[in-house]
Nucleic acid binder design. Structure first.
Lengths: 208, 208
DNA sequence: GTCTGATTGTGAAATGATTCACAATGTGAA
DNA sequence: TTCACATTGTGAATCATTTCACAATCAGAC
């Protein structure tokens, strides 16, 4: 589950690289051309050593005196995602959470692009939300295959999570971001990441 | 950040225990009295050894021949959270995501209970959503102090995340579940968990 | 009552992630 | 040009998490 068979870059590092890129974006416009590992660390709430290790993972190399060239570094991080740049995602389950996520991604033009949404309620499963075309779940297999969608976002009630997952994987999806509070049974090649909000909240409360 | 100063139970283990409890709930009604580590592992998508280690962490001990007594085990996991059972949470940022979370928790009566919501828009910041009273952010400090709220849920735009965090921590909040795509500066004693949906989606796409 | 066999509890090993610590390096100052 | 200095890149150490593997244990069969 979420192995790095891909490039050898560990999952944690990928997450932090995405963060670094966000922190660096727009810095050049503010006249910042170079930045040191400890400055990135300060922004990212982690250690300078951690930052250097992460950049090492993508083979990016800075300059002992100047630090890292902001623009170049951002390009370098983008390079890591270049290959997967045009992946498409589909969201299943147009409840409140589903709509919130659709809205967020439409607004930000974030990647991967969400190009289809599905719902079992025929009333919701047509038309569009946040500029994203919606279909009834019956159309799931054909639309995913037709559009070459490879990433699925699951915002369905727990009971539907597994059947929808099975459908998606058959149709061509290889990775799933699962918001349903259920572990998913998937073949080993599938990439799954679970975001269980209730559990996370309980965890935070526990450690207070 | 999210250390286990508390009880010595590591954060990962706490998350899995919450999951086990959910998987076990209602099993007794189905006539299942005992369950083996490998059966729990099967449901939870992990290994039997992992399950046994996790139960070891809370000092729960099974029976080599029967396995674990379902009811008793659930009680034991509940025991871990007993002390924190009546913690209260507040949500700040009544956007789409905020409302989705409010709705979800109200419905499930999940813990910690969300007892207040805040928004900077005065129009939203009064009345209630999903049975949860809403206030303008001006009232944040006083309401949090008044109600003894210790957990904060941040669903505000990135720019507001830090100032709202500062307010909450001063008012008495000790733990924050942060959905804003920004690292938060907090004192060491504060517990913070970040849920960055855009990053997670990009990560899944990357490993596909 | 004894024996059998599957399962638990847990040291020890393996794996993975982070931090340490320092030689190598490039820059700007003298 | 040379020097001094802060920073990089990175082996090695540390710390955390998971898996291995096996003695100890319990229930049920005989």
């Amino acid at each position: 589950m979420l192995s790095s068979e891909n490039t050898g870059v560990p999952a944690r590092t990928v997450e932090r690289l995405v963060l670094y890129r966000r922190l660096l974006n727009g810095l050049t416009e503010q006249g910042v051309e170079f930045i040191h590992s400890h400055e990135i660390a300060e922004k990212a709430n982690n250690s300078a050593a951690q930052v250097r290790r992460d950049l090492m993972a993508i083979g990016y190399t800075g300059n002992p005196a100047r630090g890292y060239a902001v623009n170049d570094l951002v390009r370098s991080i983008n390079g890591l995602f270049e290959q997967k740049r045009d992946q498409k995602a589909a969201l299943v389950g147009i409840g409140k959470l589903g709509r919130a996520i659709l809205g967020y991604f439409a607004l930000r033009q974030a990647r991967p692009r969400i190009v289809a949404a599905f719902d079992s309620d025929p009333a919701k499963g047509q038309g569009e939300f946040a500029g994203c075309p919606c279909y009834p779940v019956d159309a799931l297999t054909s639309v995913i295959a037709r559009d070459g969608i490879t990433v699925g976002i699951l915002t369905v009630p727990a009971d539907f999570a597994q059947p929808v997952t099975d459908l998606m994987l058959v149709a061509g999806v290889r990775g799933i971001l699962n918001f349903a509070p259920t572990p998913l049974k998937t073949p080993a090649w599938a990439v799954v990441d679970n975001v269980d909000i209730a559990t996370k909240l309980e965890k935070v409360a526990f450690f207070c």
